[in-house]
Design a protein around this nucleic acid. Structure first.
Lengths: 167, 167
DNA sequence: ACCTGAACACCGTTCAAGT
DNA sequence: ACCTGAACACCGTTCAAGT
């Protein structure tokens, strides 16, 4: 994980990792099937350990914002990993993962029916991840304060759009 | 471009491309500074040639939908290129590109003020690209008809959210 | 200005051999 | 079960030499 944070996804090579562990490169293949499998395990573990806001009884709009902010923080802390994850979503496909359960809880609060939970969650996640990745890569113009404003704009756009759907 | 479409971004190597052109691998470096620069040129060219719906005088909601659908089609035709572009947005950073001008035209129709054009465009693009990439990678559940419905849901969420902002 | 061959410093992975 | 060295089939790129 440190190798990915420091040198991007190409910063982690089987040979470099083996060197860090003072071990033969080929030994790794006895614990993991391939480099892809290793990256999958790294992503899954990191996403599972992501800090999530608890249910504090506040309105769903506020809790959705807090959840998006927690996601935002995690992506900013591990941008290369999330860029990879964005193109290899299988690693967080499990609906039982804390990150999804937290989102579904908020969406239930927002009145999204059980049958639409996965669909709505996927659309919202696609939106937020698209935005956060664009920001992380420096694609968005303006300084830090303006981008914060953009993020708020985006969250309001989503929550307003969401109430339009369920209302 | 054909190499990228067929074998993903790793499908294009300087050596393979040189072989296709019946030329020495090193000759490529007299026309392009690096592999990254080459990929940038490929992406820029393809994005510039993207088919865009003309202004047919219909309401902005409809035109935004048509624009999103055109984008959707292009991504589905060149998924690997867009996945790369998603992580290397410099290649389409130029605000004068047709794809951006088309979006700004629709946003003006929607009543977005000139000072908010770039910001709003970036947020919407981040949203749509996040969604389309998730779909392209098979991250979204359901069959083709359901995903079409998701896409409509997403567009309505955006347009409704957008009118909430400017209204 | 453009092309080339040899070389450098890397990759992921297979395989046969070891404990 | 786990580790290893040698080898295979690749990479991007530099550099000196050619036309």
């Amino acid at each position: 994980m440190r190798l990915v944070d420091e040198g991007g996804i190409e910063g982690l090579s089987m040979r470099k990792l083996a060197a860090e562990l003072d071990v033969n490169p080929m030994s790794l293949y006895h614990h993991v099937e391939s480099k892809e499998a290793l990256l999958g395990l790294i992503c899954h573990g990191a996403a599972e350990g992501m800090a999530l806001p608890p249910d504090d009884g506040s309105p769903w709009e506020h809790q959705l914002r807090e959840l998006a902010l927690a996601y935002h923080r995690h992506v900013k802390a591990h941008p290369a990993m999330w860029a990879y994850l964005h193109n290899h979503p299988e690693a967080i496909a499990d609906r039982e993962m804390p990150i999804w359960q937290a989102l579904y809880r908020v969406l239930r609060l927002a009145g999204v029916p059980e049958s639409e939970l996965w669909r709505t969650g996927d659309v919202l996640h696609a939106f937020v991840s698209g935005f956060v990745m664009a920001e992380t890569l420096g694609h968005l113009p303006g300084d830090g304060r303006e981008i914060e404003r953009d993020f708020d704009t985006a969250i309001r756009l989503m929550t307003h759009g969401l109430s339009g759907l369920s209302g």
